[in-house]
Computed example of a mutant assay.
Amino acid sequence: MKLLVFGHTGQVAQELARLAPEALCLGRDAADLADPAACAAAIRAHRPEAVINAAAWTAVDRAETEEAAARVVNADAPAAMALACADMDIPFVQISTDYVFDGSGSTPWQPGDTPAPLNAYGRTKLAGEQAVRAAGGRQVILRTSWVFSAHGTNFVKTMLKLGASRDHLRIVADQTGGPTPADAIAATCLHLARALRDGAPGGTHHFAGTPATSWAGFARETFALAGRAVTIEDIPTAEYPTPARRPLNSCLDCSALTAEFGITPPDWRAALARVVAEVKGV
């Protein structure tokens, strides 16, 4: 399959390049999402069989003061991509986020639940979803959460860096979600792109790791696997204020994805063991 990927250095983009070395992965120098027209032009120029957008504005806190710029990257650029794909009848996979929800309650969010983002990042990603749907065509919007890998910036790498010099950390324990390995997201995006190409229906789906845990629980497992004696002190979100509000409940119901595509949520603990080993081996 002739695959075009937007993104080059991000966590999912790097895993897509590893899983599908034949794919063309466009970095900012080739297709800057701050220039939506250039993204559409790239699709028209390369005429791929499928497109995956693995690029986004992911600086959640910075989006609070730069929402207009984040909206161009997270909404206007995917809209331009989706329109170009619809015009050319090319399958399009857009990655979205649990941050489109307000995090209320304790029940895992289903794809049809009403979004109500708490922060600017979530608002821009929701605007991207709405624009992609409005474009029509063959498409899947894949919401995911708490992405981690051996690449880029993420919670696991931050914990390992902090744990190298500290033996006690205070970590938020009242936010719950499903850590999701970037390689599993990449594999799912490839599966969906091929399924769309072969005539499968699109829609909005959820994909996240299992079982649910807190950031504190995630940290404990990371240090256990790394063999580091770091004591984790559970704290509430109120004791770790950030510019952008985070949802307390980021759990995603992935049953529709399993029913329609046979894709099951990954056990993040097994993936974490691989990631920790890879990071420690660098």
Rank of each mutant, 00 (worst) to 15 (best):
R47T: 14
P78M: 00
A38P: 05
I171T: 10
A40G: 15
T213V: 08
A63G: 00
L16K: 01
A13W: 03
R170Y: 14
A54G: 06
V100G: 00
D167H: 12
P266Y: 10
L190D: 04
L225T: 08
V147K: 03
A79F: 02
P247V: 09
D267T: 00
G103Y: 03
A127S: 13
V172E: 10
H46W: 11
A229Y: 13
R44T: 03
V73W: 14
C85D: 03
A224F: 11
A50F: 11
L257I: 02
S145E: 13
D35C: 11
V230R: 04
W268P: 15
T97R: 01
A131G: 05
V275W: 05
L142E: 03
E260M: 07
A79D: 07
E129Q: 00
L4P: 01
R274F: 15
P181Q: 02
S255L: 13
G202L: 07
A17E: 12
R194N: 12
R269D: 00
M81W: 06
S255G: 15
M81N: 11
A226D: 06
A219C: 04
A193K: 04
V51S: 07
F148W: 07
S145N: 14
P48W: 00
E260S: 03
D35W: 10
A131Q: 06
R123C: 10
V147H: 13
A135E: 05
Q11C: 11
A40P: 13
L83Q: 12
V5K: 00
A193I: 07
K157Q: 14
M81D: 01
A38G: 09
A120D: 06
T222G: 10
F6P: 01
Q94D: 04
H206Q: 02
G152P: 04
F207Y: 09
I171H: 10
L142Y: 03
L83K: 09
F223L: 08
P181H: 01
R133H: 13
L126Q: 05
C251S: 14
A120P: 06
E129M: 02
F223W: 00
A216V: 00
P211Q: 05
R143Q: 05
G105Q: 12
A34E: 09
G152I: 04
F92A: 02
T124W: 03
S149R: 04
G209E: 04
A17F: 04
R62Y: 15
G122I: 08
N74K: 11
G10R: 01
V279E: 12
G122K: 12
C254K: 06
L83A: 14
R18P: 04
A50K: 10
F218E: 04
A224I: 12
H151K: 12
R246Q: 13
A50H: 09
